[in-house]
Design a binder for these strands. Sequence first.
DNA 1: GCTGTCAAAGTTTTT
DNA 2: CTTTGACAGC
Length: 672
Amino acid sequence: MLDPNLNKKQQEAVQYLSGPALVLAGAGSGKTKVITQKIAYLIQQCHYESQRVFALTFTNKAAREMQERLATLLSPAQLRGLFVGTFHAFGLRFLREEGAHAGLKAQFSILDAHDSYAIVQELLNTTDRGRVFSAQQQISLWKNALLDPDTVAAQFNGKALNELVHLYRSYEATLNAYQAVDFDDLVRLPAKLMQENSQVAQRWQHRVHYLLVDEYQDTNVCQYEWVRALVHLRQQFTVVGDDDQAIYAWRGATVENLQRLKDDFPNLKLIKLEQNYRSVQRILTAANRVIQHNPQVFGKRLWSDLSYGEEIQVQECANERAEAEWVAINLMQERTMRQTRWRDFAVLYRSNHQARILEQFLRQFRIPYVLTGGQSFFAKAEVRDLMAYLRLLANTDDDPAFIRALTTPRKGVGQTTLERLGQFASAQGGSLWQALPTFLLSQSLNAPQKKALTQFYEFIQRLLTQVHFQGTQAAELLDTLLRAIDYEGYLFNQYDERPALSRWQNVLDLLDWLKRKLVADQLNIIELVQHVSLVTILDRSEKDEELDAVHLSTLHAAKGLEFPHVFLIGVEEGLLPHMGREDEFYAANEEPVASFTQRIQEERRLMYVGITRAQRSLRISWCQQRRRGREDISCERSRFITEMFHGQEQAQATQPKKDADDYLAELKSLFD
DNA sequence: GCTGTCAAAGTTTTT
DNA sequence: CTTTGACAGC
């Protein structure tokens, strides 16, 4: 049955099946609802087979949310075979089947940003982090634009970027030698294969009967081409997007993909969802005012049935400490006065480091909070250490994993020996692991190093005999591994008691999570490792939902979420809009990727995303001074605040009635 | 030649 | 607060 709560436009979007459809869905207009309802409609009413329907998202969170909603709409049998996941997860599945056509072995590794950084650093032979970072970025942008080294070389012929092109080539060669792909490749290689291999293309064109894409405005060229190739045959797809919420241009996304869609599919059906079910009108008005300063591709105006709502407050703070305190005090007051739950609040900010000071104050006030986004659990050193062993077991040619496993915990093999082994391996044209047995016979090796390397070799060799174990047996293998390397001992030796304990806890959490995964899905280590590479944060979504806690999130990570009461902090020139270094990146034809104006526009959309997260109340703060590195810099109010209130009286923030000390005293008395 | 200690720096956003 | 690179000692 079609949900009777759908409005006319939503219904149209769900039921339109006569060809390609673009649903322009403003913030809070029921976009996820439309996608999930449409999937249900396809399967239940139109008799699409589940394994023929594919829904693509950008984040794991969005995918999970859709899966959860679908679980309430479809029977377990109907859910089976249905693909709802990120582009990258889909890419992994695609490459598992088709990787051979791209020269990949079945057990290829997936490198994370750290690994690629290390590779670029090695190739550039520099310790200048800025240089490495920007080179890495450039390669990533090229990849996202579906440009391979040859194409780039042709376009940059004889120019200063030659060195970078050369780097790109070596980088690709290195990955190939490791039998590894990076994140970008998970989308780039499928797109490329679809274009270049007609057998592969046909296979998938026949498999995918209906395709849905969420957050379409954030697709890059690879994703666009991949989608285009997938639907080439049937032209049955729905993409949902909002050009005003495009905030990933820095990752190669281009809003022009919306425009291109019209050109490539002349019969494209355009459906606009403009009724907002989320926010009170005042908040929408503010959002509309801000976004109006951007050029409008598709004229679109959000409106709401809800009441007008209370004033939007703007608070000027002396510095970020004062700001964090202001947030904490307001949270205390609001919770008492409105009888709300903690989870009804979110504090949103431009960059992760702003969370730190907030955390301090929230802890002090004993306000429970959860951090979404931010530093990935899987980026933590201790987690990567353990994963290195697993990656090595899954793919012994994974040199970055080999190096990390061999050197952490330290085993008496260092820089020099490693370099020699590296030279030895590249002379043989193989990986470090392949070279190791012969290298052990070499004369230049000293006794201690030889002994250490032999031990390591035998240790890994032994584990390798068990690498195909599944489920419980594989889980036991993890325990064995951890005990054998005495990682706990290493941690407590390396760090003070408290940090060591917290790291060890992380390892135990990881271990627990891995084991559950192994047993639940009956995976072996190889499958597990590939899966884990795509997970950015430890999956405890249900707990987060149940938890009554204030949400702390970056603006990027908050997209798609909504909260009754929102604090948007750090709204200053330089921070929002953010002004970074004037890095010069190039897409093609040596055109810089983004002009100053374009950057401001993206920042404005970010502001728009922030405002439209709020359902009922919105509070904005900015600081006169902010600590940046070692010095205090003075800040100005963001232009976006001015734009928000343009032609309107600006609400003056009311001073909190109690000050921080009162609250702390009160709290203290509670706990004494 | 390896490893531990010390000082310096911090990257906007994420798969 | 964490991570990384430089350096000195074992």
